[in-house]
Design a protein around this nucleic acid. Structure first.
Lengths: 225, 225
DNA sequence: CCTACCGATCGGTAGG
DNA sequence: CCTACCGATCGGTAGG
C-alpha cells in the first residue's frame, strides 16, 4: 500500500496544474465562468490537512477528502495527480505560510530586543502555529513523513531549513551569554522536539494558556533572565 | 481503514489465546509436540514491531507480517484476533519491558546518588530503549496511537504511567535545588518530548555517542552541576 | 468536475 | 498453522 515511489526531480514543486477553461455544469455558480479553481484547490488542501491530521494519511481515503470538499470521488484528481501529491501540497503549503509568519513575528520586535525576548517570540509563534486553525500541517508533516517520496522530502526540507535557520542566531547569542547551556545546533533539536511534542498533551482550551506555556518552556531552556 | 471500534473492557488485556493442542504438520519440528507457541507469538510481535515502525501500521499488511515471521497469510490470526490486537500487543509488550529495565537502571545506582545522576541514568536509559534493538515499540506507540481503540489506549496508559512516575521524584528534587527551572510535571513533558524527538534526527552510528547526547541533554535541562 | 468503472489489495474466516 | 476464499474498499482513470 503506497510504497514510496521515486519520482523525477521535475515533479518536485507543487506547480498548480494547467487549468483548462472550466465549463460550469450542474448547479450554476454565482459567476458562470468565474475562475475559482484556486479556491477549490485550497479547499481540497484544507480538507485533506484536517483529515490527514485526525485520521492519518493512509487511513484517509481520497473519497473522504472529496466528500469533505463537497465533491465526488474522482474530482480531487482533477486538481492533484495523486493522493501523494496532495500530501506534499498540504505540508509545503502550510510550511511556507509558517516561514512567512515567523519572519513577521521577528520583525515586529524592537530592533534592540535582547535574544531572550527573540526566543520568546519564536517559541510563542511556534505554539501559535501548532495550535492555531491552520496548524494541521505540522502534525501531518511529523507523522506522515514516511509517506512522502524522497524528492518530496527534499522539497519540504528546503522550506523547513528556512524556518529553522531563523532560530540559530538567537540560540547562538543565548549560548554566548551562557543562558543556553547546550550546543546551539543540538539545543535547537531538543527544544523544537519539546515544543512539537506538546501536540501530544497540550489542549488550548485547558487551564494553561499559551503565554504560560511559553513562559515555562523559556524558563526550562534559558532560565529566568 | 480501521476506524477505532469500541470494545468491551474485557477485551482489554492482551491475554494469550487459549491454545489448542498443536498437531505439527508439514516440516516436522525438532521435538514433535514442543510447545513453542510462545516463541511463535513473540516472533510475530517482533516482526510486526519492526514493520509498524518502518512502514506504519496502516501501510503494513498482515501478509507482510506473516511473511516476515515465515508464515502464510492467515496464520497471524491464529495468534491474534485482529491486526489491531497485534498493534496493542506490540506496544504493551515493549512498554512493560521498558518499565522493568528502567527500574533496574535506577536500582543499579548507589543509594546516595544525587538527583542529577539519577536523571542522567533515566535519560541514558531512555535513549538506550529508543535506539536499542527492542525499541521499535516507542515510535510505534507515538505514531500509531490513533489506531488504538480507547480501551487499548487506557490499558497502555496504565503502563506508561508507571514509566513516567519513576521520573517525578527525581525532577522534584532537581526543582527543589533550583537546577530544574520549570514546574516538574511540565518539565517532564518537555524533557521527554525532547528526548523522544531524537528518533527523528539521531543516528546511533553517527559521530555523536549516546553518552555525549545524554550529556548535552542534561546540560540543557539542568546545567552542569 | 461528474459518472461509471477497473484491477489490486486488504483484513479476516471456514474448514481441515 | 495452511489453503482457499470472500466482501469491502481503495487509488486512479476514461470519457464526457
Amino acid at each position: 500500500m503506497c510504497p514510496p515511489r521515486s519520482e523525477p526531480p521535475s515533479a518536485l514543486a507543487g506547480e498548480p496544474p494547467a487549468v483548462p477553461a472550466a465549463r460550469p455544469r450542474g448547479r450554476p455558480r454565482k459567476a458562470p465562468d468565474a475562475r475559482d479553481d484556486g479556491n477549490r484547490r485550497q479547499l481540497i488542501i484544507d480538507s485533506a490537512a484536517r483529515l490527514f491530521r485526525t485520521q492519518g494519511f493512509d487511513a484517509t481515503s481520497t473519497r473522504d477528502i472529496a466528500a469533505a470538499a463537497d465533491m465526488r470521488s474522482g474530482s480531487p484528481f482533477y486538481h492533484f495527480e495523486s493522493k501523494n501529491a496532495l500530501l506534499h501540497a498540504v505540508v509545503e503549503d502550510g510550511l511556507q505560510r509558517a516561514v512567512a509568519s515567523q519572519q513577521q513575528a521577528l520583525q515586529q520586535l524592537p530592533a534592540a530586543a535582547p535574544p531572550r525576548e527573540r526566543l520568546a517570540a519564536l517559541v510563542r509563534h511556534h505554539f501559535e502555529v501548532l495550535f492555531g486553525p491552520e496548524g494541521d500541517f505540522i502534525p501531518v508533516m511529523l507523522y506522515e513523513w514516511r509517506s512522502l517520496t524522497p524528492p518530496q522530502r527534499a522539497s519540504i526540507d528546503r522550506v523547513k531549513a528556512d524556518y529553522e535557520a531563523q532560530w540559530m542566531p538567537v540560540l547562538q547569542a543565548l549560548h554566548d551569554t551562557g543562558a543556553l547551556r547546550a550546543e546551539p545546533a543540538l539545543a535547537r533539536l531538543f527544544i523544537m522536539g519539546a515544543l512539537n511534542w506538546a501536540v501530544q498533551w497540550y489542549r488550548p482550551d485547558g487551564r494553561l494558556s499559551l503565554d504560560a506555556l511559553t513562559g515555562q518552556a523559556l524558563r526550562l531552556f534559558v532560565g529566568d533572565r
